[in-house]
Amino acid sequence: MSNSRILPEFELLAPKTMSEAVDMAARYGDRATVLAGGTDVIIMLEKNAVKPEYVIALGEIPDLDYITYSKADGLTIGALATAYQLVQDKKVKKKYPALWQAAASLGSPQIRNAATIVGNILRASPSGDCCCAMLALGGSVVLESTSGRREVSIDDFFIDYGKIERREDEIAVELKLPPVEDASTSAFLRMTRMTFDLSKVSAAVSLQMSGKKCKAVRMAMGAVAPTAIRIKKAETMLEGVTITEKLLSDVAATVSRQVKPIDDVRSTADYRREVSGVLAKRVIKAACNV
């Protein structure tokens, strides 16, 4: 139907197994785009932001939508597991609240029914809510190619805007998040113009507490830099000390100084800088009820 073209022409590849998929990725490299739920890819195609000759659609590979948890291995999220599935998972809600909250507020019900968690990480948008949450929780992305699998720490995964630690012959198979200890808590918060919108600023934290004392912490923010980022200065301030109102105010000021946001359609850099400190403080409070 050329008279009503919406997407540019491409050749569709629908592998039935992961090994077929990685063969295709090896053969076509950067001439191919991988498609999971399509909530980013279809729009990138429609905007002509990508012009692949081939689209490798993973949707017909069976049993790739798993979400499993074990005390030994932690949480594993298969490449086709959607935001909806993650939100339905009681273990995730209890043990990884930051990721659960990120998935629960992502887009609309229709979007959550299609969008995969892996796709959100692989898109690596600065405002990707699961990117921010996962950076705070820690973990790794498992990538597969014809030469086998490798695991990349989430700390090394986001390189720059639109740049990730994935070779063009690789397909992401799953995400792994470390097991959580009983004294661990986490939280995710975001600011949007309306609820159904991309984040202007987002923040996530995971904490290991001993009473009011913070034993270990990871903190991340979204939409304040070209990728989601760890806020290491804030982590250093929090680690090993008792969390007080005064400390949180100091953390907020440090965060506002460390972030490097930009002006865009959703917000101004100044506003983002100001608000990111406030959000950092709130997300810590939300995680540990201090």
Binding site: G38, I42, I43, A57, P109, Q110, A114
Partner: peptide, 8 residues
């Protein structure tokens, strides 16, 4: 429910 505009 899904958005049919986003599916092939």
């Amino acid at each position: 429910i899904i958005n049919s505009c986003l599916s092939l």
